[in-house]
Each structure stands twice: as C-alpha cells, then as structure tokens.
Amino acid sequence: MSDFYVRYYVGHTGRYGHEFLEFEFQSNGKLRYRNNSNYKNDTMIRKEAYVSPMILKELQRIVAQSEIMKEDDANWPEPNIDGKQELEIVSGKDHICFTTSKIGSLVDIQNSSDPEGLKAFYYLVQDLKCFVFSLISLHFKIKPI
C-alpha cells in the first residue's frame, strides 16, 4: 500500500460541549475512531484496530470512484457556528484537506455555489461513514452513534 491516508471530522460546540465524530485510516492499516458527546455526561468513545490491506484497497477504490481529488473547497460554505466537516486524504503525491459547514440535505447543496463538488463530498462522506460504522460495530459490538 503506497502512501494513503483518510481522515474525516464532523463536529460542533454547543450545549453539550464539543461534540464530534472523527475517524482515520493510516497506510499501515491503523483505523482510529472517536466519538465525543457530553450529553448526559457521556464519555468519549475511542476505538482503534488494524485492518487488512484489502480494506484499504476498498477504501482507495471508494475514494477514486468519488473523484473527490478533482474537487476544490474554495467555493464551499465555510464552517460556521452550527459545525464543521473536514475531510483529509493523502493518496500518493496528492493531498487534499477540505473543510465546510455541516450539510443538512441535498437542498443545501443545490443552493450552494458548487453543487457538483459538494455532492461528490456529501456522498463520499456518507459512504465512508457507512463503511467505518460497519467495521467498528462488527469488531467491537457497539452501535457507533
């Protein structure tokens, strides 16, 4: 596996403190997952596991298929008081780290100044979250979120 790294963060600061979800995959297979909420004095969930090369390869395929590396966050909504999303990907010599606000629905995307780019981001993030939630819940037997 050549240099490959994926990290996604989504969070905001509000009534229950800094609530966020973050996960990352490193090229040696390390998968880290964090989910923090102070709601009802909940403590931070922090999980770590190593995944096989096949999982990273599948991740690479999902990223490539999304064509996210062709996009640019220059015209995306800036992170705001309602929250922030951050997607960082290193793939070979390419390195992107896109930030934007939380996206409520496709309506927000249609009304933005870069609907195509945001759509690529929106669907990729959903596919990544879905993949990670499956991995974490199968390995640790917890329901993430």
């Binding site: 990290r7 963060y9 966020f20 973050e22 990352e24 880290r32 964090r34 969930i45 922090r46 999980k47 770590e48 596991a49 590396m69 640019d72 966050d73 220059a74 800036e78 951050e86 997607l87 960082e88 070979g92 010599k93 390419d94 390195h95 992107i96 780290c97 896109f98 930030t99 390995h139 640790f140």
Partner: peptide, 26 residues
C-alpha cells in the same frame, strides 16, 4: 502532487494532539 483545500492552511487534526491517549482495542 495536488495540494488543495482550506484545511491544509489551518490544520485542525485532533489526532495530532492525543497520540498518548488510550484508545480501546480488542
């Protein structure tokens, strides 16, 4: 290679700051 994104100038990776924290493993 490509270097793109507002986050590159304002890194906020949370993982950088908790290298020593305990992550649950199985």
């Amino acid at each position: 290679g490509i270097r793109r994104g507002r986050g590159l100038d304002a890194p906020s990776s949370r993982y950088d700051r908790d290298e020593d924290m305990d992550y649950e493993t199985y």
